[in-house]
Computed example of a mutant assay.
Amino acid sequence: MEKKAVIAMSGGVDSSVAALLVQQCGYEAIGVTLKLHTNEDAGISREKTCCSLDDVNDARSVAARLGMPFYVFNFTDSFRQEVMDRFVRAYERGETPNPCIDCNRYIKFRKLMQRAREIGYDYVATGHYARVEQDVETGRWLLKKGLDHTKDQSYVLYSLTQGELSRLLLPLGGLTKERVRQIAEENGFVNAKKHDSQDICFVPDGDYAAFIERYAGTKFQPGPFVGTHGEVYGKHRGIIHYTVGQRKGLGLSFPQPMYVCGIDTARNEVVLGKHEELFSRELTARDINLISREMISGPLRVKAKVRYRHAEQPATVLQTGPDELRVTFDEPQRAVTKGQALVLYEGDTVVGGGTIQ
């Protein structure tokens, strides 16, 4: 029986090479680009987004070169509800979310896998730098880091379920970015030298606060900057303009550098403190997903990351409830931020993760 796969093609070089490799492995494959939002949703010009017509055309060009059928799936309603709405609500709660994780969780895997199954395709492939393996002893599906640790994207995939991992193909997991570009050039792909997108697709100018106010249709009110001991320093511009660890853009002058140490939404306060006040050894995470095991039955030694660009750190994790983890780091960590993802590793294997509370 022929294996069939849907390739999620963004128009970038990674997903294009993933499509080629899946095809070379003998899968009957189709290429799919996801239409996730109209630019008017984000209040930006039609040209300025990674989901632009140029990206669709690049994906279509590669699919045509591979002799692969190509389609565009319109997921704009789901993306607005599951990603953009969650992003705005998180900022309103004084959190700093990672919308790429929600996009992977609710759209690229849950929604796309559902659609793939509806049209008779067993697998979904993406251009993420990570690996999926099955444990021969336990039968559990494991998520592992990409072999090119400078490009590893396992952090943003920690929410994958066993069912999703069993149907996921990640053909770039064993390759370097340099090799991927080389393969693209060897095959004459139009996007072989295309730059990677760095921005959140619906906030390409990086001005989160302006986007949130446009999207929510409300103006966030100024309030007090306060110190960690209750001192009042001045007025902030609205809580959505700030995140833990921020130093620039406060509009205040101090004898020493001051940083955002917390956001109190109930009081509409932004809490400022010295650099040493940014550090903490413990955190709680909820909305958890465990991959390498069903549950964490006792204290477990792990390496933990508290944001995408964070170097993983030694820690001990304890599962304190069905949907709660408590992590204690060996050394205090800087700017642990509500709303970001905690991801736990044993070696190259993702144990699981959750949302920092």
Rank of each mutant, 00 (worst) to 15 (best):
D14A: 10
A18T: 14
L21G: 03
T33K: 01
L36R: 02
T49K: 00
C50M: 05
L53I: 10
V56L: 14
R60G: 04
G67P: 08
F70E: 10
Y71K: 15
D77C: 09
D77V: 13
D77N: 08
R80I: 15
V83E: 00
M84I: 10
M84C: 12
D85G: 05
R93G: 08
R105I: 12
Y106G: 06
Y106K: 12
F109V: 03
I119Y: 05
Y121I: 03
H128Q: 14
V132D: 03
E133H: 12
E137L: 14
D148C: 15
H149N: 11
Q153G: 06
S154K: 01
S154R: 02
Y155V: 09
Y155K: 06
S159R: 08
P171R: 07
R179P: 07
V180K: 00
V180R: 01
A184I: 06
C201K: 01
D205F: 09
D205Y: 08
Y215C: 10
G217P: 05
V226D: 04
G227C: 07
G227A: 01
H241S: 03
Y242F: 11
L250V: 00
L252V: 04
L252F: 07
L252T: 00
S253C: 04
P255F: 08
D264R: 13
R267M: 10
E269L: 09
E277H: 05
R286P: 02
I288D: 12
E294T: 11
G298F: 05
P299R: 15
L300T: 11
V302G: 02
K305F: 06
V306H: 00
R309C: 14
Q313N: 13
T316L: 12
T320Y: 07
D323L: 13
E324V: 13
R326Y: 14
T328D: 13
P332G: 10
K338A: 07
T349P: 01
V350S: 00
G352I: 07
